[in-house]
Design a binder for these strands. Structure first.
Lengths: 159, 159
DNA sequence: AGGCGTACATCAGGGCTTTGATAGTTCGGG
DNA sequence: CCCGAACTATCAAAGCCCTGATGTACGCCT
């Protein structure tokens, strides 16, 4: 067997998209690993982290900060709320929005989990020179612009 | 309102992980968009593409090629099979493995879908110089090594 | 004041992904 | 010869994520 497995693997992997995918996967895997002891998933951690920076934000805004849809954020928040890590209550001035904040337990858990999560990013950053990190970020941002700017014509960049 | 929204957004986005995540997301979103008319999701397309390069491969190997778990690949293949795009039959020499190949309809659909998918990657590649692409790939691969090489000690690299 | 556009939350449905566990197959060493 | 290691497929349970569609609340503009 093994038709040409090596060759095939290369054919599949050569696309830039594959490299991005694998990097994202590796990142998620590693973060999941360090977050698991706290019973948190990566999206849950991300939501709590954003929430620590912007207490009382609406679910929709939180979703935008975390780059997910409001629906995804809703499910994440629902589980977090069921565990008592966040609290949601109707806003006083906007009957429609639910004000969300970390509970005390949530803050305490986040503090510990954040240390681990930051350590992962740090391991990553430390493996490169500052120039390389800046370059990587710049290239990725450019890729986002190219990809997002095609097709539905958001404009915003041209001119 | 808008506590410091700008600032917050930056705080969330500064981490290298965020850049990778957004790039991957933009890529997925754009690929999904061009694949939608064919009724294919990105994982489905990826599986069919790999299958076109390695006809009759086992589900487990296919999963490895696509960088997903065998379970994920199983669900993908199940839907593809239910649509008659792939065919699975027990192997003659390995009673356990299911030999999977594209059906004629699958081949035809892949040919059309692939053109669109390749065009997306091409738009991406064309936005950079060859040097930049190579650099991006190199940096990402290095990130994968750093992240994957920590914690569970696969070894394999350190002499 | 009434209407329209914007924003928020949520329901419904389809898919992907992961961890954990079960079970049959193949092959090689003891 | 039998057993264990490696591989394959699959079930089950939890979550996440997306598209599409509803219903409601706010604010501005006419």
């Amino acid at each position: 067997m093994a038709i040409d497995e090596k060759k095939i693997a290369e054919s599949v992997a050569w696309r830039p998209g594959g490299a991005v995918k694998r990097a994202e996967q590796a990142l998620m895997a590693e973060k999941s690993r360090v977050l698991r002891p706290f019973g948190l998933t990566v999206p849950q951690y991300a939501a709590m982290y954003a929430l620590s920076l912007a207490p009382g934000i609406s679910g929709a805004k939180l979703a935008r900060l975390c780059s997910v849809t409001p629906q995804s954020m809703a499910t994440v928040l629902k589980t977090l709320e069921s565990r008592g890590l966040v609290e949601r209550r109707p806003s006083s001035d906007h009957a429609q929005v639910l004000v969300t904040r970390l509970s005390r337990a949530g803050q305490a858990l986040l503090r510990k989990a954040d240390a681990e999560a930051v350590a992962v990013e740090r391991r990553l950053v430390d493996a490169f020179t500052p120039d390389e990190i800046a370059l990587l970020r710049e290239l990725l941002e450019r890729a986002v612009v190219v990809l997002a700017g095609t097709g539905h014509d958001d404009g915003a960049d041209s001119f």
